[in-house]
């Protein structure tokens, strides 16, 4: 069993750390994992994405054409990768930054206003945690608790005091009841 998660957005939205957190959680949960970023002559405000693979066996290619899950943090990411998601896969869209619905009919889609939820919790930088929570509730690749534990272990020292808020944001995302998209 292998699950590929493509996380894409603007630099600064916590896309790369969100992916690393999933990889840490997968590793600590006893799975095989890879994390690979897109890298290029990118700058702040540019696009950023990473692919995380969580698997029961030795992982071959760290990149796949059709990931099981796409987490689109902004419109350019949805435009670019919507068509790539594997049939029957999951699409998690940050509707705060995407003013359109989803075209694909053969995937499951969650539109979640992750920025607003994060801001209501008190910090826009929690957006990535809200998105991760929503993804985990709909694609149980790892238990939420495993990700919370990994967060506790790997949140940067200077942000340690923000740990409870981050966990709250993960849970808020997981509790989100989306309006069904056909």
């Amino acid at each position: 069993m292998q699950t590929e998660i493509l996380i894409a957005g603007f630099g600064g939205q916590g896309v790369l750390f969100g992916g690393q957190l999933m990889a840490y959680a997968g590793m600590e949960y006893g799975k095989q994992v890879t994390w690979i970023p897109s890298y290029g002559p990118e700058m702040r405000g540019g696009t950023a994405n990473c692919t995380v693979i969580i698997s029961d066996e030795e992982i071959g290619s760290p990149l796949v054409r059709h990931p099981r899950v796409l987490m689109a943090f902004n419109l350019p990411s949805l435009d670019k990768y919507e068509s790539a998601v594997a049939e029957g896969g999951l699409l998690v869209v940050n509707s705060s930054m995407v003013e359109r619905s989803v075209d694909r009919k053969n995937v499951r889609s969650i539109l979640i206003p992750a920025n607003e939820i994060a801001e209501n919790l008190g910090d826009k930088r929690l957006t990535n945690m809200v998105m991760l929570g929503a993804m985990l509730a709909n694609q149980p690749v790892l238990p939420l608790e495993a990700v919370e534990k990994a967060l506790e272990h790997h949140i940067p020292e200077r942000h340690k005091r923000l740990l409870p808020m981050n966990i709250k944001a993960l849970r808020k995302g997981a509790e989100f009841k989306p309006v069904a998209v056909k």
């Binding site: 095989q32 690979i36 890298y39």
Partner: peptide, 9 residues
């Protein structure tokens, strides 16, 4: 570049 930039356990 792929192996260099990738993270794995």
């Amino acid at each position: 570049g792929s192996i260099g930039q990738m993270m794995e356990p």
